[in-house]
Design a protein around this nucleic acid. Structure first.
Length: 298
DNA sequence: CTGCAGGGGTAAA
DNA sequence: TTTACCCCTGCA
């Protein structure tokens, strides 16, 4: 049995304040379905773990306050993770001109940003999301982290890092099953093995330029179909803003909007993707997120 | 109280 | 193209 040291006491708390923030609403960023490990606090701020960092994000007027314990400079980490380089105002301006619904959905979720999450974590998380509901997805991921990740202490609470492939190396199917993974247990096992045996590496994946090729590679993992692959492409550091993941909600809203005559299920994914490309072009993925967040709240 | 549908899909038939 | 799948929750 491996013992992990609690690193929290050795790391200093840091903070960073982003002034005059635009397109940054913690609730929208963390509740729009792209991530599973951010928890809402009593004061409406959010605390989460990414990499070996625990960070709290709080919005006060137009300031965003990031506080936490980090391995590296907190500002650098946040700029990368929260995609702060990208000009969301400019992208929203373009999408708003598509049609009235886009305009409405952007007004509703105007503070959404697409996170640059770790590819491995995003991959595992969305494999778990298959035919599953959000509360249970979150529960399973926390079970995984608590059981196999490293503890980090901060302010009298213990947080856990997302387990690395190495940390899942000797976990049996049965042990995964006990954590509530269900039929997905063998998928997680398969992905872990493929990574550890170097059949596919994330470094290699990151180098692939062509999105189609990258999607194909991702779909070689057991448990990864088109939807999961698209989510990884959009929500991780792979960051393909033009991919359009279609889940039940997105299918619903797209049919209502652009295929009002058709009855349920008669419009296939290919048609919907084609329509998204026509309407939203290279910003399809971002548009998908506004639509998803807006339609789900309705 | 029991039964059943359905959930941010995928693999296998 | 259709169907089973772990497990949990909501609702009839």
């Amino acid at each position: 049995m491996i013992k992990y040291k609690i690193v929290g006491d050795e790391m200093k708390e840091q903070s960073y304040i982003l002034e005059n923030s635009t397109s940054f609403e913690p609730e929208q960023i963390f509740e729009c379905g792209q991530c599973f490990r951010w928890q809402r606090e009593e004061d409406r701020s959010y605390t989460g773990v990414f990499g070996r960092n625990v960070i709290n994000v709080k919005k006060e007027k137009n300031k965003i306050i990031f506080t936490g314990i980090c391995e590296k400079d907190i500002k650098e980490l946040c700029w990368s993770y929260f995609d702060l380089e990208r000009d969301y105002e400019a992208m929203k301006k373009v999408l708003k001109q598509v049609d009235k619904t886009m305009l409405d959905s952007i007004s509703y979720g105007s503070g959404i940003r697409l996170l640059n999450q770790d590819i491995w974590e995003t991959l595992i998380s969305f494999i778990i999301s298959a035919n599953n509901n959000i509360p249970r997805i979150k529960k399973i991921i926390e079970n995984l982290a608590r059981t196999y990740g490293n503890p980090i202490k901060w302010k009298d609470k213990t947080y856990y890092t997302f387990p690395t492939p190495k940390q899942l190396e000797h976990v049996t199917t049965l042990e995964f099953r006990k954590l509530g993974l269900g039929f997905r247990d063998k998928y997680i096992e398969n992905v872990t093995k493929k990574i550890l045996h170097n059949e596919i590496s994330f470094e290699e994946l990151s180098k692939i330029k062509e999105t189609e090729k990258l999607r194909e590679k991702l779909m070689q993992f057991n448990g990864v179909g088109e939807k999961v692959a698209d989510c990884v492409l959009l929500f991780s550091t792979l960051k393909r803003l033009d991919v359009f993941p279609i889940d039940v909600w997105v299918r619903r809203v797209m049919q209502e909007l652009y295929f009002p005559e058709a009855d349920e299920k008669s419009v296939d994914k290919k048609q919907i993707k084609k329509m998204a490309e026509i309407k939203f072009r290279n910003l399809s993925g971002l548009a998908q997120q506004y639509l998803f967040y807006w339609r789900r709240a309705a």
